[in-house]
Amino acid sequence: MIRVQRDDFDIGRELDALTAGRTDIGGLASFVGLVRDFVNPGSGADTAAIHGMTLEHYPGMTEKMLTEIEAEANRRWPLQASLIIHRYGALRPGERIVLVACAAAHREDALQACSFLIDWLKTKAPFWKLEDTDAGPRWVAAKESDDDLAARWDKA
């Protein structure tokens, strides 16, 4: 299941819902992305403090890409359930941006699929971050290391 929403989500409730009534799930892996208040050291950007960010997306294509990414994870690993929730709009430091969760009979499938989902999402889902910094608003530049992380899942 995928959801794109402005509102926050309750991690416990979402994870519980994913496994509710199931007895065939042996492991549930999740990742939560948060808004951080400092710039990555060595990113080349100046080190102005971050007061928040606005996440923009491409309505329609976002849902389509998240659905495709989730389907790909389900093709590669035997998952019993999966979930992607991604927020958009204005977010303050400490707020949740994204939740990815994968449930499987075995932990390794759940952990790997979860890692795959967040890596692919970063480079394939049409979201852009506008940071509100001391030095003014600044669009976050994509990182090559994100491409590298996504590429490690490329099939030979």
């Binding site: 948060l34 990555n40 991604h86 889902a125 971050k129």
Partner: peptide, 13 residues
């Protein structure tokens, strides 16, 4: 047709 920069979704970079 949509034109945009490389995507930066997900958690913190």
């Amino acid at each position: 047709v949509a034109l945009f920069p490389p995507m930066t979704g997900g958690g913190a970079p």
